[in-house]
């Protein structure tokens, strides 16, 4: 990855880095005076540039949609105005809150169950032996294949929707909790033993904190899965939520409203992820610090 200066220094041109990140890490670590990049390359590498291109695309879309009016698409300003009107009240707000509620309850139930079961499976042989066969058979099953069965048993209301979301989130968290709790360093476990910690104290004070970085990896991928499934389950059950709203709008060909719904889901996902990262940075600050100073 490292560019050898004696080979690459032919003309004044800066050789294009193969992978920009590898090069930037390299140069920030080497003690010698790092060469300052030309401003154009620095600008191209900044995050603001990406958002600028995105904004330009919106402007292009707006101009095209205004110049060629059609019921098949909407202008950016129409979408923005509609979104603002609807998010303050009415069906969009109701549907968003319904979806968010289903999602958060299902996700929360899954998080608690998966962490408890994952840690127990990693630390209690009997639990592992008993739960491994059914969980391994259930895991590869697509969640969409389970929905009809759950509708049969639980109906199409909250119980079913929350179960489906929980099921979708469960395995992401379970696998990470299991592997995290199973790989506590031997010296760490010896420390717990020599300090006379009971089994419960060992779990609470050693195993679970040590597994926390791994558990958070699972929680994060489960968050994305929960949002997707909570929208989809609304489409299938067809009674409430953003999924249901989108289906109605699609059937009545309300293009602007459809885009408004999609934008709402995207923003919901963005906000949830941002909130997640905020919590993660606080809970795992020690982990990020330790891995940063480690070489």
């Amino acid at each position: 990855m490292t560019t050898n200066p004696t080979v690459t220094r032919t003309t004044g041109a800066v050789p294009l880095p193969a992978t920009p990140d590898a090069i930037s890490n390299e140069s920030s670590r080497t003690a010698g005076a790092p060469k300052r990049r030309p401003w154009i390359l620095r600008a191209l590498r900044s995050r603001a540039f990406g958002w600028l291109v995105f904004a330009a695309a919106l402007v292009a879309w707006q101009r095209y949609a205004t110049a060629n009016p059609s019921p098949r698409y909407a202008t950016v300003t129409d979408v923005a105005v509609q979104w603002w009107d609807q998010i303050l009240g009415g069906p969009l707000l109701t549907a968003t809150l319904q979806t968010l509620r289903t999602m958060l309850i299902g996700y929360g139930v899954a998080a608690v169950l998966a962490v408890v079961i994952g840690v127990l499976m990693a630390r209690v042989r009997l639990v592992y032996v008993l739960l491994e066969p059914p969980l391994e058979l259930l895991r590869p099953m697509p969640i969409s294949a389970v929905i009809p069965l759950l509708i049969l048993y639980l109906g199409i209301d909250d119980a079913m929707k929350i179960s489906v979301v929980a099921l979708a989130a469960f395995f992401h968290i379970l696998l990470n909790a299991y592997s995290g709790a199973g790989s506590t360093h031997r010296t760490m476990m010896d420390t717990a033993r020599t300090f006379g910690l009971t089994w419960r104290q060992t779990m609470a004070e050693i195993v679970i904190p040590a597994a926390a970085p791994s558990i958070f990896v699972g929680l994060r991928s489960a968050l994305a899965a929960s949002l997707v499934i909570s929208v989809v389950v609304g489409m299938i059950a067809g009674n409430d939520g953003l999924g249901h709203l989108l289906m109605i709008q699609q059937q009545s060909f309300q293009v602007t409203d459809l885009i408004v719904g999609a934008v709402t889901i995207a923003m919901l996902g963005y906000a949830l992820n941002a909130a997640f990262l905020f919590v993660e940075r606080r809970v795992l600050h020690w982990h990020f610090g330790a891995t940063r100073t480690h070489d």
């Binding site: 360093h185 031997r186 010296t187 020599t194 050693i206 926390a212 982990h287 330790a290």
Partner: peptide, 22 residues
């Protein structure tokens, strides 16, 4: 029968013995 109550250990691998979250 297991680690005696009146003993404590200091291990070679201090990085894996100290709790990094504390």
């Amino acid at each position: 029968d297991g680690p005696p109550r009146q003993a404590r250990c200091v291990f070679q691998d201090y990085a894996q013995s100290l709790l990094p979250w504390k």
